[in-house]
Design a protein around this nucleic acid. Structure first.
Lengths: 188, 188
DNA sequence: AGCAGCCTATTTACCAGTAGGTAAGTAACT
DNA sequence: AGTTACTTACCTACTGGTAAATAGGCTGCT
């Protein structure tokens, strides 16, 4: 029950960051949602920066696990890309922004450790995507010009941006359309 | 000198929103930078929501003026697209995020009028881009599949996302690379 | 079995600093 | 005398954070 509280705090804080941003919520918000006192939160996460850092690490772990599942369940690079985009779409459908996409916008006010953790998330995404793109190229199911890492970076940026704007319009379809177009540009 | 104060407030606030976000700065920050009191700011912009709304409107006006210049100075749709992307790059080079891209991330905490103004900015961008894309298609200098408005939306999202992430890495080149790749996808 | 002592999770009761905002006064120009 | 552009002096609510008290469960010892 004890370890559970930490996770429940993270669940609520995660939702708040994804919908309102790291600067858009307070310990009081989490405390209220969880029906405990603020002081209790500080017991589990001494400072907001700690909470934020833990949030990113857990999010990255969940995300990379999902990517491993994709690898395990499909061999076709085109399918992998589509399933990658589908992760974003699912997040958006829940009215959330990608946690790290949100934090990227707030970069200027983020504690240093959070900045590094956030970039690590994108680095790992890029690594996975680069692997998939390389594989797709080798298997001749994807075709695109130029450097593989740059292609991966472009893809991440395009999906994050599409997500961010689609959310402002409350329109998942807008994301889907952009996502399909971007993937089509890679032959997927 | 009086009318000037309002503009100087907007200048400073604009910079703060673009670097720290709307929730990442306070009237006290602006007052300090301008060496006036907070109360003086409230004289010019009664509430922060007012300030924010005025900020967006001024930003949109400047932006649309820049787009008119592009129209006036070039007839080639490929050049127009490249110059459009160059606007983003210049903003980023100044270590800023696009004002409305930043606000899109903070959408969940924005006052309603600001939400609408922000979407208006994107709508106008989309309108201009759609016009350019249509023209490029007609002139056979651009080629892309599917609906023109959707293509325009995709382009905006890709540039905003690339910008946001590149800024987190303090790497303008990362934006440039993504931007070139995206434009290449339209034949530009 | 009984209980002392400890650990974990939590509360109550604070704290200083900052947020956005207001009321009333003032100084200069028209 | 009125208008414009401010300042001084406040206000309330909230921010992240802390210290001390407390309640309950588990440990080992006699």
């Amino acid at each position: 029950m004890a370890a559970d509280t930490s996770q429940r705090i993270l669940d609520i804080a995660e939702r708040l960051v994804q919908t309102r941003g790291f600067n858009g919520f307070s310990y009081a918000d989490v405390a209220q949602a969880l029906k405990v006192t603020k002081a209790s939160l500080h017991y589990h996460f001494p400072s907001k920066a700690d909470l934020g850092a833990r949030l990113i690490k857990r999010y990255e772990r969940k995300f990379l696990t999902a990517l491993e599942s994709i690898d395990a369940e499909s061999g076709d690079a085109r399918v992998k890309l589509r399933r990658y985009a589908a992760i974003y779409e699912d997040v958006l459908r829940d009215n959330r922004m990608c946690l790290c996409g949100m934090l990227a916008a707030e970069f200027g006010t983020l504690p240093k450790p959070m900045r590094e953790d956030m970039r690590h998330f994108f680095d790992e995404n890029e690594r996975w995507l680069a692997k998939v793109l390389q594989q797709g190229k080798r298997d001749k199911v994807l075709k695109f010009a130029g450097s593989v890492p740059e292609a991966a970076q472009t893809l991440i940026g395009a999906l994050e941006g599409a997500m961010m704007i689609a959310r402002s319009y409350g329109d998942v379809g807008r994301f889907t359309a952009a996502s399909e177009r971007v993937l089509a540009g890679f032959g997927a």
